[in-house]
Every structure is written in C-alpha cells, then in structure tokens.
C-alpha cells in the first residue's frame, strides 16, 4: 500500500541548527555566566561571562582549502537593572570561546532582586543572551 511519505520537517535555521554546527566536541553556544548569588548594595562583584564561539577570523583556510569567512562575536554588553555595566566591541584578535571577567557595581534597595542582562551578537546575526538575578542584601 503506497502511502505519501511523511512530511519532512522544515530545515531548522535557528538556534538548534546553530547549536548543532557549533557543537563540535565540547563546544556549546549557550552562554555561561558566573556571579555571586547575593551582594550588598554598594558592593562590587566579579562577573564572569563566557560563550563558546569559533570566532573565525576570516583569514584561515578550512579543510577544503577555501578561506573560512569571518564570523566573530562583534559585541557584548552587560546591563544591571537596565544600566550599562560594560560594553565591549570585539575584533578578530579575540580568541575563540571568549571568556570575560569584569566587575559590576551593585546598587538597589536591600531585599530586592537585581537583574543582570547579558547579550552577545555575532557576524551571522545570532544573538545570545542570558538573564541572571542577584539578591541585594
């Protein structure tokens, strides 16, 4: 009995496909952010933000001998409660899987929750983001 073949799912061009492409070995394209769970208002906390990304410089020949086009994370930003902590512009000189460490100045009412927003943007138009809360003591 001939049946119509099951409909093929549309090719995924979003985050899943990107993740599959970036997941070579241990690489993952989910941001990883480390910061303390709580901090006093007025204190400075160390923030570590990492994203696995090949950071192709556009100067390297791939397996087929062709130049791999440039594909880097070109910008990163960190906001705390909507205010800028740091804004970074990357050039191809930054290593693959860049990990950033910097300090944020915590400010807010004791007992409230502060929100950190992290965003990475790459040449291919992908946007990676993370939102991490911190308890203000």
């Amino acid at each position: 009995m001939a049946e119509t073949p099951p409909e093929r799912p549309a090719p995924d061009t979003g985050a899943t496909a990107l993740r599959a492409r970036l997941n070579r070995g241990p690489r993952q394209s989910t941001p990883k952010v480390t910061l303390p769970k709580s901090a006093r208002s007025g204190a400075c906390v160390a923030v570590r933000a990492a994203l696995c990304h090949p950071m192709e410089t556009g100067r390297r020949a791939g397996d087929d001998g062709q130049i791999v086009p440039r594909a880097i994370i070109h910008s990163f930003s960190c906001l705390f409660n909507g205010e800028t902590v740091i804004d970074v512009r990357f050039e191809p000189g930054v290593s693959p899987d860049p990990e950033l460490v910097f300090e944020a100045h915590i400010d807010g009412a004791a007992g409230s929750v502060g929100l950190f927003d992290f965003a990475w943007q790459d040449d291919e138009g992908h946007r990676f983001s993370a939102r991490v809360p911190i308890d203000i003591l």
């Binding site: 400075c44 410089t57 205010e83 050039e91 100045h105």
Partner: peptide
C-alpha cells in the same frame, strides 16, 4: 597589537554600573 592583522583587538566601554576598571579576556597575539 602591532603585528596583528587587525590591530585593534578589543574596545571596552565602562558604563555607570561598572565596578573597578578591570577587564579580562584572552586574545590572539
């Protein structure tokens, strides 16, 4: 970096919520 193909490696701007003016990353040299 003088000998790098793209001389500027990274440009960091500190905003109003930045703590100490300190930034760590890793670069190609």
């Amino acid at each position: 970096a003088k000998g790098a193909p793209s001389v500027l490696l990274a440009d960091v701007r500190f905003g109003p919520r930045a703590g100490a003016r300190r930034f760590e990353t890793s670069v190609r040299l």
